[in-house]
Design a binder for these strands. Structure first.
Lengths: 236, 236
DNA sequence: ATCGTTGATTTGTGATCACACATTACGGCA
DNA sequence: TGCCGTAATGTGTGATCACAAATCAACGAT
């Protein structure tokens, strides 16, 4: 009898506000350097200041937002140096997760990854850019889940949140080429996972991350806020 | 004229409360599983509830504290699985930082590290356990600073905060043997950095982390809260 | 004795307000 | 026109309060 009941929503208002803002950041609805005000967001979301305030501070703690010395809250913006540092960190950490995932390889996992990847390809050809973004995220995190390291996934999630606005930029501009080349690396990752070759899997995944990042700087996408000094292009 | 003035403290109350709680966690003044109440801490610190509330939520966002489904806030406690996962993550990330630090090696850095390490040894022999803890942290972070990756340091800092209570346990018990063996690995790390051998440096640092963690489980230190189910001892 | 119930107390959440500081706009003076 | 005080507005911080949910204690029934 009781098993027919689905759990009711017991989340707090603060939590829902947090998720909403997080989602908006992921989708690049805010651009780097934007100032977010408590009262402004509270009015927009139809709540009081309190929940917004706590959600914002949580995002600041997660480094998705930054607080200026004058205590106003802005969307984090990168210098090229910080951007490439983050990419290097992602390559190391997500490479680690991939390596462990390969050890836990199973036919079901491989099949699942292949399906996601091919659905990505059709989404790219069809021009459904939002599906492409979603598929890319699903592909990566399906691997990371397979590593069975919950704390590591939390960390990776946080890193993605920081780079989130970037992919959103590509989405807005209608670009999808970096993802198309990405699917080729994805296939190589899957093949390595299939053979339980952790090193190869990690190596190809790192190339995927690197190639995508490289594409952004090659196209000089406006991801570096003008708030920072010296937005110089650097080679890896 | 104005250069004679030193800057005044412009930090917020919330920030000072946060730092105080963080420090307490580092020193292991709270034990795993303890419940922290807003009003209780506010009374103890002589502030209102507001700053405490925000400091606690920041620590929750950083995973130093956890929030139960009933929304009470506790000091995070580990299962052995989560503990070893964290150690593995630390080995990878801090290994990465060490590798890059070796590339930025300089005679000054090597000299500095040797001094810290030898001061650690005398602190151990003298029984100044607090200095030992401090020296160990200084040794590691001097290396990580040399990597010149600010975001990476933030991440490492957070990982140390999560494992913080543990070293505090050793401090309370008056143990210092894990640190004595640690200084031997430290010396090997320094030698590798001196030769700019990133791989060797990272490898020895990983062993240092692993050996310290191993010591804790070998001595069955009570680091795993009874709040969790199945606190089983596992081998790496 | 064990379990469920009831009541008292504690606790987190969210709203509202006062205040100090930051930011902006305006206006006068060089 | 350019610069600098000054007023006006906006904004984060911290305090306080109301409320619902959780926790704990005492009590009674089985």
């Amino acid at each position: 009898m009781t098993d027919k009941l689905s759990p009711v929503d017991v989340s707090t208002l603060q939590e829902r506000v947090y998720l909403k803002l997080r989602e908006a950041l992921y989708q690049g609805k805010f651009s780097a350097g934007d100032t977010l005000t408590i009262r402004g967001l509270a009015a927009a979301l139809g709540t009081s200041a309190m929940p917004v305030r706590e959600a914002l501070q949580r995002l600041v703690a997660e480094k998705a937002l930054v607080q200026t010395p004058s205590r106003s809250i802005r969307v984090a913006s990168f210098t090229p140096e910080l951007f490439w540092e983050l990419i290097r960190i992602r390559m190391t950490i997500e490479g680690m997760a991939t390596q462990r995932a390969a050890l836990n390889s199973s036919p079901a996992l491989v099949k699942n990854l292949r399906e996601i990847n091919s659905s990505m390809i059709t989404a790219i050809k069809g021009g459904f850019t939002e599906d492409v973004l979603d598929g890319n995220k699903r592909f990566h995190f399906t691997i990371y889940e397979a590593a069975e390291m919950p704390q590591l996934i939390e960390i990776i999630n946080n890193l993605w949140l920081r780079t989130g606005p970037y992919l959103g930029v590509a989405y807005r501009m209608g670009y999808s080429d970096p993802f198309l080349t990405g699917t080729r690396f994805h296939e190589r990752v899957v093949q390595a996972i299939e053979r339980r070759d952790g090193r190869k899997a990690a190596a190809n995944l790192k190339v995927d991350i690197w190639a995508t990042a490289k594409w952004f700087t090659r196209h000089r996408i406006a991801i570096f806020g003008e708030y920072e000094e010296k937005p110089i292009q650097i080679a890896l």
